[in-house]
Design a protein around this nucleic acid. Structure first.
Lengths: 205, 205
DNA sequence: CCGGATGTACACCGAGCAGTGTACTTTATC
DNA sequence: GATAAAGTACACTGCTCGGTGTACATCCGG
């Protein structure tokens, strides 16, 4: 009676999960083009036919993977602008939030696969990065609010937001994506975050 | 008597050039994996056998392409630190130099192909980006000199250099690489450069 | 314990690809 | 104009891949 397991449920669900997990792993390791359905089936310990019974094509499977990984990230509490608290404190909180995302292995996997696959598929790349853009809105919104409250001196919150993010991503995103470097340790994160915020405020505050 | 042409020289050289140009185009369009030697041969208007007479394998051809593109970039005059000139002026010159590289289509092509191909080939990626790192030394050296002269307040020139580059690349490199966006126009370049330098100096000067 | 759903093993198709071997033609040089 | 070097057309090998069809085994709810 396998119904007792809380995680597994029906066989068909377990198989499906195994396929998705194997596919994530393979796509992450080898990218879209060089990953074969046979390898995915083998890693999932599943018949190739079963893979095709669940997913009609490699393309669809890949899309589902992207969707699946996207779900895994979903959680994201906003930091709203507060007039009664120091800018530095609030910005550091915003950055810390960003670091939580950047340290999330699921996010990095998603980004790597998406960028690797999308680099020669403009429409998919466009779509993915637009979605990621939504994540970054939080910071822009905060900057706009602070500027409206007269505490930041910028006419272009989007630009300023990109600048601050550039100060972070140059250390904590692009090297990890393009060079598979490990995430920054706590000390490095602190240095990057504080230095970025201080530089940002030195200019805009 | 085709010897009259200044650019073409011997037939074998013309053929070789055609192959390289076609290969660059194809690799840039489709990446390493999905580009076939047949397509390269077709685009070069050359027999497939001729391709293999010039280059023993796809792998070698690809390596030559990378080398070839690297050569095409080579030129790069250094800006040395001058104690008698304003920091802002010198930094803007440094950034302008970086923009010349970022606007160079050959460089962007190289970077895209290399990153796309290298994203799942750690050793090649490592090698490429180390080479690119050499290019960036100029800025770091300048910052170190300025700090030694007591005009910049940093203990970590490499870190500071990465920060300044983050402020540039977030606008003028990564979007172009990962999203195939067009290079920044002159006005945008000016805004990005001046804002970056001013922010940098507001913090470190 | 029955029966439909699901999974499996395996053979297979058609296509594309890297790379080779060969017989022949073109090019350029002396 | 002979001759060696270079290019070409083309057939072919061996391999991988995405995807399918099928006959048979296994699972699991009623």
């Amino acid at each position: 009676m396998p119904s007792s397991s809380a995680t597994s449920q029906r066989l068909t669900d377990r198989k499906r999960r195994a396929i998705i997990e194997a596919a994530i792993e393979e796509f992450r390791l080898s990218g879209y083009e060089t990953t074969s359905m046979d390898r995915i089936a083998a890693r999932a310990a599943v018949s190739k036919r079963t893979v095709y019974n669940h997913f009609p094509s490699k393309e669809v499977l890949f899309a589902q993977i992207l969707h699946h990984l996207w779900q895994a990230i979903a959680g994201g509490e906003e930091v709203v602008y507060r007039h009664d608290r120091p800018l530095r404190e609030q910005l550091l909180e915003l950055i810390a939030q960003k670091f939580r995302l950047l340290n999330d292995e699921a996010f990095v996997s998603l980004a790597r696969v998406a960028i690797a696959a999308g680099i020669h598929s403009p429409e998919r790349a466009q779509q993915m990065v637009e979605r990621m853009g939504e994540r970054e809105e939080g910071l822009t919104v905060w900057i706009r609010a602070a500027a409206a409250a007269g505490r930041l001196n910028t006419k272009d919150p989007v630009f300023a937001s990109h600048q601050l993010q550039g100060l972070i991503k140059g250390f904590a995103f692009w090297p990890q994506i393009t060079l598979a470097q490990p995430p920054l340790d706590a000390a490095a994160q602190k240095q990057v975050a504080e230095s970025a915020v201080d530089m940002f405020l030195a200019y805009y505050a």
